[in-house]
Design a protein around this nucleic acid. Structure first.
Length: 530
RNA sequence: GCGGGCGUAGUUCAAUGGUAGAACGUCAGCCUUCCAAGCUGAAUAUGCCGGUUCGAUCCCGGUCGCCCGCUCCA
């Protein structure tokens, strides 16, 4: 059956995974809070990523582990950094609305074509093109409109042939160059009369604040829209302090902020979110090798944490959707997940981008600091290129929840969360079969021993069925039940979340049992074992 | 940002121009030797602001939030 997002959202709230931010004040659009279980899940994913990147980075093509160091840079940086990165300019996409058709266009995606003839005629007042009684002097078309499409549209609007043409005598103007008054005589791409387009509206997708208690333009600062820039800003510091040599990576996990026009789809597109980014610096000649390497590693990671189904797919960006930093080079490939709200389409989970030397070059120019790399062996001096695997931590957590959400009418809870044990917020629940001391005593002892190593729950209240059901709903993979046999022979029942099957194991072996079950999730485990 | 829909307990739903009810969940207790059993009890809701009205959860306006579509997503 199709997974309904409403059920997922309800479970997340009911069991304490994700709450609307500022819930008691009616919430705030685009912001979410992670509850007691949500923060565990998110931290587990975060820690596994950190381990896979920084603690036990993968074995490289040459058979030795690659070099990656960690970083935690400030959310607020010198605003010049965002000018250099292109965010101050590039983040502001002027938008134009059509009052008639309610459509919205990016101003830089519209062009206007004005026929000289029309202009002249209008100027001398002898003849005019009138549409619905209004003077039309110019027509806006999508930037990719073909001549045929433009002809067809003009004909439909009743413009006589010969009055206006696209034979090269008709100038093209960028929308932004048009004056406010000219808008009155401009016909929108889908409108039936002139004058329906609004002035371009500035959209700045970066959050602004002020460093210091007095607000002025002089101390305006931005909340980072991506963690990546903090890495580029520290490239030289890391290089000078960390004994790293090309190629190497700098990894960072942290919050990022984007003033999304329209936050949607639960935590998928929120205004405050968390990223896991690694900038891999390498020689320009090696980018292809490393792009392929990281693409494969990152795919393995997502499969290892539990996104092993057909819901995961890989997609290369088309040329039309490339970022400003990826216009040259190898482009961007996405790892995508089929979320319930995107199905049958997929939503981006991680992008592996070739950022070229865009960022370091830009920061070198703007800061005046030399950021080139001098190879100590070859004495070659060059600007490193960057392969960037950039993943959404919060999106990842959402994908994990969606993937884990399993409807099972046959069990009391009706649903269980099939998390990989390493990701599950609680690894196990310790359940005394009855609330009597002979059960509670050993259960408490087991709980105290296990909690040193695992996130476990001790649950004494209510009957055993209710307790199993509750653990199912929060995705606890194992329940250890203490009963009369435990007192006799020191064994406990292990109840498996997915199969509901039970087996008895010695109480001494419980920790080892859990340790074993946690194992396979590390993305680099297989290679290490080999 | 535009259009449409919606807003009642933690969740899912019901009802009404005359002071809101259920199920599940939660909590407390009893009972329970393995899957939400049974029994008893308890707490908890009309998003917010304003208007109409004798009286508004219901009608109207605004606002906030959620969902769908469009747009956008460097």
């Amino acid at each position: 059956m199709d997974l309904d997002m409403k059920d997922v959202v309800a479970l997340c709230k009911r069991r304490g995974f994700i709450f609307p931010a500022s819930d008691i004040y009616g919430g705030i659009n685009g912001f979410w809070d992670y509850g007691p279980l949500g923060v565990e899940l998110k931290n587990n994913l975060r820690d596994l990523w950190w381990k896979a990147m920084v603690v036990t980075p993968p074995i490289g093509p040459d058979g030795t582990p690659v070099q990656i160091v960690g970083l935690d840079s400030s959310i607020i940086q010198n605003p010049k950094a965002w000018v250099a990165s292109g965010h101050v300019g590039g983040f502001s996409d002027p938008m134009v609305d059509c009052r008639e058709t309610k459509k919205r266009y990016r101003a830089d995606h519209l062009i206007q074509r004005i026929a000289d003839k029309v202009k002249v005629l209008a100027d001398i007042g002898s003849e005019e093109i009138k549409i619905k009684g209004k003077v039309a002097k110019a027509f806006a078309f999508p930037i990719d409109a073909t001549n045929e499409e433009m002809d067809r549209r003009l004909k439909k609007l009743g413009v006589k042939k010969g009055w206006i043409s696209h034979d090269g005598t008709m100038p093209e103007l960028a929308f932004a160059d048009f004056s406010k008054q000219d808008l009155e005589t401009l016909v929108g791409p889908d409108a039936s009369e002139p004058g329906t387009l609004t002035e371009p509206k500035e959209f700045n997708l970066m959050f602004e604040s002020h460093a210091g208690p007095v607000q002025s333009d002089d101390n305006k600062v931005y909340l980072r829209p991506e963690t990546a820039q903090g890495i580029f800003l520290n490239f030289k510091n890391v290089l000078d302090s960390s004994r790293v040599r090309m190629p190497f990576g700098i990894a960072q996990i942290g919050k990022a902020f984007r003033n999304e026009v329209n936050p949607r789809n639960f935590i998928f597109r929120s205004r405050e979110f968390e990223q896991m980014e690694m900038e891999w610096f390498c020689h320009p000649d090696e980018v292809e090798k490393w792009r392929d390497f990281w693409f494969e590693e990152r795919t393995k990671f997502w499969r290892a944490v539990g996104l092993a189904s057909d819901n995961l797919q890989m997609r290369k960006h088309g040329d039309d959707e490339l970022s400003h930093y990826a216009k040259e080079g190898l482009g961007t490939s996405d790892i995508e997940y089929k979320f319930p709200f995107t199905a049958p389409d997929f939503g981006e989970l991680e992008g592996i981008a070739h950022r070229c030397d865009f960022d370091l070059t830009a920061h070198q120019e703007h800061s005046g600091q030399k950021l080139e790399y001098m190879d100590p062996v070859t004495q070659e001096k060059y600007m490193p290129h960057v392969i960037e695997p950039a993943a959404g931590l919060t999106r990842g957590a959402l994908a994990l929840i969606c993937e884990a959400y399993t409807v099972d009418e046959s069990r009391p809870s009706g649903v269980y969360l099939n998390f990989h044990p390493a990701l599950a917020p609680k690894k196990a629940a310790i359940l005394p079969l009855s609330a009597k001391e002979e059960h509670v005593g050993p259960a408490t002892k087991l709980y105290l021993a296990l909690r040193e190593e695992f996130a476990v729950d001790l649950d004494i209240k209510q009957n055993i069925g209710k307790r199993y059901a509750r653990q199912d709903e929060i995705g606890t993979p194992y329940c250890f039940t203490i009963d009369n046999d435990t007192i006799e022979d020191g064994t406990v029942t292990v109840r498996d979340r997915n199969t509901m099957a039970q087996e008895r194991i010695s109480m001494d072996k419980v920790a080892e049992y859990l340790r074993e079950k946690m194992k396979p999730a590390g993305a680099n485990q297989e290679k290490e074992a080999a």
